[in-house]
């Protein structure tokens, strides 16, 4: 009995020692493994076991940034791909930078491979980027807020610096797509001109230039630049059906700007029709005398276009601007 107890004690002691050894070794080993994995791929893919082992289990002196995402095409997560690209840029920038060390690792959990991790962390949205600090549990601020910060690599890097004090200088792989597209366009235009070198009359086609210029004006005046910079939704869905016109004067939807461009265009077309019906700028009196009926009709069409579409424009504007008192034809 006595011996048994002693044996037990010895066994327990050795076991403990062994456990302590594996634990102490575990940290170094883990770091080594993580460094190896990072060397292979700058974002470490994690499944449930790996996640538990590297991210959750205690002997850690490193921070872990984990992105939870759903990349499978069946999940239809359009933004996931964008976030993944940006996240990849951050991870690569860190991986190949001077500041690379064993204090920070980047990982990724895909929903289809680790849905139990999602359950464990009670996540029901993707993508999420979370920071698991070296000590303690993640705080609410340890998951990144895309809505406020945006999804740019710079924003992610700034957030990481905020959380871990590791400064990452973003090095974007130079984006050749723009340059390539530009070069292709240039080559196409040049090639086209070269092929048609004997027949360059079309360049003197004023109609074409005028149409291009007028369309550019429509695009700008209807706020396409605002759409480009602010990225509003196409239109807004509510319980009472879709809303196409933003209620405030400081915002707009993409569809709304198209509507406005069309209204503007209709007014311009109407006015040009009227001018052409009345004889055009060059003022050809001989032609002006002829075909009175057709021209009268054209003129009336132009007038109706101008009045109706301008009134529509005015009422849309009135709906957006509070307290605007004037309208024309329609309320």
């Amino acid at each position: 009995m006595k011996y048994k107890a002693l044996l037990c004690l010895v066994v327990i002691l050795t076991f403990y020692q062994g456990a302590a050894q594996t634990r102490a070794k575990g940290l170094e080993e883990k770091l080594q493994q993580l460094a190896d994995m990072t060397a292979k791929k700058s974002i470490i893919p994690l499944n449930f076991n790996k996640f538990k082992e590297y991210v959750k289990s205690p002997p850690r002196d490193y921070s872990f940034i984990v992105m939870f995402t759903a990349m499978a095409p069946a999940r239809r997560c359009a933004i996931c791909q964008h976030v993944y690209d940006e996240y990849m840029i951050v991870a690569n920038s860190f991986r190949f930078s001077q500041a690379y060390n064993n204090k920070l690792f980047f990982g990724m959990v895909d929903f289809d491979e680790g849905s139990d991790i999602f359950q464990m962390l009670r996540l029901n949205t993707a993508p999420v980027i979370m920071h698991f600090p070296a000590k303690g549990k993640p705080k609410p601020a340890d998951s990144m807020d895309f809505e406020r910060a945006g999804i740019h690599a710079e924003a992610i890097a700034k957030w990481i610096q905020d959380r871990t004090d590791v400064q990452i200088r973003i090095f974007r792989p130079p984006n050749y797509s723009g340059a390539v597209a530009f070069a292709t366009l240039f080559l196409l235009v040049a090639g086209f001109l070269y092929l048609r070198r004997n027949n360059l009359e079309f360049l003197y086609n004023k109609q074409m230039w005028a149409v291009a210029a007028v369309f550019f004006c429509f695009a700008m005046v209807s706020g396409q630049m605002w759409n480009q910079i602010r990225g509003p939704p196409f239109f807004h869905r509510t319980k009472n059906g879709p809303v196409y016109i933003n209620g405030g004067s400081h915002g707009q939807f993409v569809l709304e700007s198209y509507i406005v461009a069309i209204l503007n265009g209709a007014v311009v077309v109407g006015m040009i029709l009227m001018i052409e019906a009345a004889g055009g700028v060059k003022g050809d009196p001989a032609r002006a005398q002829a075909e009175g009926k057709r021209r009268r009709f054209q003129s009336v069409v132009g007038l109706v276009l101008v009045c109706v579409f301008f009134s529509l424009l005015l009422s849309v504007f009135r709906a957006k601007t509070q307290g605007y008192p004037y309208s024309f034809l329609f309320k």
């Binding site: 706020g223 630049m225 605002w226 480009q228 004067s249 700007s257 406005v260 601007t321």
Partner: peptide, 10 residues
């Protein structure tokens, strides 16, 4: 800031 169509119209 960039310009919305309603400021153009206004």
């Amino acid at each position: 800031q960039p310009t919305t169509w309603s400021s153009f119209f206004f």
